[in-house]
Amino acid sequence: MDKELLRIDDLVVRYVVDQEVVKAVNGVTLGIREGRTLCLVGETGAGKTTTALSIMGLVPTPPGKIAQGRVLYRGENLLEKSDREMRRIRGREIAMIFQDPMTSLNPVLTVGDQIAEVIQIHNKLSKKDATVRAKQMLELVGIPGDRYDEYPHQFSGGMKQRVMIAIALACKPRLLIADEPTTALDVTIQAQVLELIKSLKDELNTAMLLITHDLGVVAEVGNDVAIMYAGEIVESGTVEDVFERMAHPYTRGLFSCVPDMDAETDRLPTIPGLVPDPSNLPNGCKFHPRCPVKTSECEQRNPGAVELSAGHFVKCVRYQHR
């Protein structure tokens, strides 16, 4: 069994904005093992990005507040580390790729300099050596090394994302957090970028937390998957467990929404209702207002996670009484 690299225990993150409390993350527990990819799936507003930022220590703390929980990286609680210690971890041990490549690069620096920057922050290398390594990283992501001196605006969206990948992997981190890395790209480029991420991460044996709302991406790249709804993990397990033996009604709903090319349909199925407002969450199970199989118990209490089989957890009242 691979060692567990990252473990999030009962994380609760709130944002306080103008007297209103936004409950972004409500008791998230998940684990990522070395070299494996965990896909965090959920709709917009489920709290996926906040979870990722909490790992990096980048939740803006005036409005945001980590109310409870631990983020254990190699046994150490990242939430207790000082800013200085976190800066040594960011980029070197844990790296992040952001969603929109168009705005994630500094427009007035060359792409090569931006890759060299992360190398220079974490290694005592001369500018020349850092440049050489940066060119190597460019080649690794499929961009000719002599484009080192070009500026972000001279690259297409897909290539900018590759540059981001180069920056993230330049110091060979143990954990890569990819926040919807392909959402902003068109489908053919998506496939290329995913393929690139997959091969690089296999080569470097990097673990990955891949945030996405696309189940197809999960099937392509994921080893494990966690389904997130209203700040909670409602189902988690290996991709095989969740895809073949899905348990939670929300998971079932998500899968039924995937259009089937062969079926003759007039209307696509949906999950009725809307994702709840995080500043005004329903009582009991957060999914119950939209659940097709809810019971009276669902409104009253929020069920804890139940282990259906090894590693396959689900948070649903219907599985509580086994």
Binding site: R90, G91, S104, N106, V118
Partner: peptide
């Protein structure tokens, strides 16, 4: 890109 810069330490 400022958040990205923070994310690399």
């Amino acid at each position: 890109f400022i958040e990205a810069a923070r994310s690399i330490g």
